[in-house]
């Protein structure tokens, strides 16, 4: 009976263990979004207000998630800068900011996954800071771009 139960536990938990292993590999390679200081965060509602205020200077908006997500819908005026959690994405980010002055206000966002699981946002933030950009802000997307932006009816455009 004990052997049977142990076998059952092994069988039942194997997919979970494999999943956790895969997940840990991904996580190990990515710095969590929680590492970004609260002072750098912008709430979606605040960004919407800023975008609607014609007298305010809009930051350079960069989406640092996947192309498929960007093409479906993104914040008006934002540019696709590539998934910063991957080497090719970082190259794309470098290209996107190559011509910008270091004091340019930049706001990055992703929204591919829940905030604590996002592989891109902290990587992009750290990279921009490391390259000397001093006015980088990050859009705080708690759940994902769908729940925290699209569903709220905030302005969106598609490619």
């Amino acid at each position: 009976m004990i052997k049977g139960f142990a076998g059952f536990i092994r069988l039942a938990s194997r997919p979970l263990l494999i999943g956790l292993l895969l997940c840990s590999i991904v996580h190990a390679a990515h710095k969590p979004a929680a590492s970004i200081s609260a002072a750098a965060l912008v709430q979606p509602a605040a960004l919407v207000a800023q975008l609607r205020d014609k007298s305010a200077t809009a930051p350079v908006l960069l989406q640092v998630g996947s192309r498929a997500l960007y093409d479906q819908g993104h914040i008006p005026g934002s540019r696709y800068a590539g998934p910063a959690g991957e080497p090719k994405g970082l190259e794309s980010l470098h290209a996107a900011v190559a011509s910008l002055a270091k004091d340019t206000p930049i706001l990055i966002y992703c929204g591919c996954c829940p905030w604590n699981r996002c592989p891109n946002i902290a990587a992009a933030y750290d990279e921009l800071k490391a390259r000397g950009f001093g006015a980088v802000k990050v859009l705080y997307i708690a759940q994902d771009f769908g729940a925290d932006w699209i569903d709220k009816g905030y302005p969106t455009e598609s490619s």
């Binding site: 194997r14 997919p15 979970l16 494999i18 999943g19 956790l20 895969l22 997940c23 991904v26 996580h27 990515h30 996947s66 998934p83 959690g85 991957e86 591919c112 996954c113 829940p114 699981r117 592989p119 891109n120």
Partner: peptide, 17 residues
Amino acid sequence: WATWCAPCLIEMPRFSQ
């Protein structure tokens, strides 16, 4: 899903099962 999506990778082995 996507390869860089941690929650996705949690789900996939169970879907295979």
